[in-house]
């Protein structure tokens, strides 16, 4: 549980430090008006759209969720019945597809900054296609494990497989949420054809796709048998 705890402490530390900076010299009981230096130092709002603030907070929430899942993975690993994960090779291909999807999103963002609507449209569509491909690949990995008898009652024989299902399901749910927003943004570009109007949306989507990729890389790394064994050895040392 140290990982989520450290995360929360870090988030709270940043929040408290920010508030400290905002408020240390302020004496609100003194009559001040609206135009004094007091207000400029303690306004406390961010110079970004509300959607960006919502995304930042949501990423903190999602990080808390994944950190807790990973903490559970480590704690479960310390039980006596742990056995290595049967790593389906398709996960490497899926990881590659997600990287391409992220690169496509990045190029959509760059095109939006340059105001090239056509390029934005194409990049978003390509990113969407890659995302669908990633999800299909994940389903295929599930089916592959299922066909090897790791689903249903047999799952209990391998706790690491159970975590594979948990990690991929949680990650896929977040990918689907992102895909919904991506779809809406793509539709807007298709109808509107004005890159400037969707620039903020595309930038926020890009941040989210970077996050999805980052989380996936951590999760898939933890499932790699060699890394998983290394973690287990460290936990028992």
């Amino acid at each position: 549980m140290a990982a989520p705890l450290l995360l929360v402490v870090a988030i709270m530390f940043v929040t408290v430090a920010w508030l400290f900076r905002q408020t240390i010299n302020v004496q609100p009981w003194q009559e001040a008006g609206i135009g004094s230096a007091e207000n400029s130092s303690s306004g406390g709002s961010f110079h970004v759209p509300p959607a960006a603030v919502v995304l930042a907070i949501f990423l903190a929430v999602a990080t808390s969720l994944f950190a807790l899942s990973v903490a559970a993975y480590f704690m479960r690993m310390m039980q006596g019945d742990w056995s290595g994960f049967v790593f389906p090779n398709i996960l490497w291909a899926n990881t590659g597809v997600l990287i391409v999807s992220d690169l496509a999103m990045r190029s959509a963002r760059n095109a939006a900054r340059r105001g090239e609507s056509g390029a934005v449209r194409n990049a978003l569509a390509f990113c969407g296609a890659c995302t669908v491909l990633f999800l299909v690949g994940q389903v295929h990995a599930w089916q592959q494990l299922n066909s090897q008898g790791f689903f249903g009652g047999s799952v209990s024989s391998s706790p690491s497989n159970s975590f594979f299902y948990l990690f991929t399901a949680l990650h896929a749910a977040h990918v689907l949420g992102g895909f919904f927003v991506l779809g809406r943004t793509t539709l807007r570009v298709w109808r509107d054809a004005d890159a400037a109007r969707v620039r903020v949306n595309v930038e926020l989507c890009t941040t989210y796709w970077h996050y999805l990729l980052g989380v996936w890389l951590v999760l898939v790394a933890l499932l790699v048998p060699a890394i998983s064994e290394l973690c287990r050895a460290r936990l028992f040392s």
Binding site: I11, S64, D81, V155, P159, S162
Partner: peptide
Amino acid sequence: ALLAFPALFVAAIMMMMDLTMGTSF
């Protein structure tokens, strides 16, 4: 709540998997 509820969420999902999929979290 935003930082703490994910713990309840993930615990609920894991317990549901124990109940329905035969996992042993």
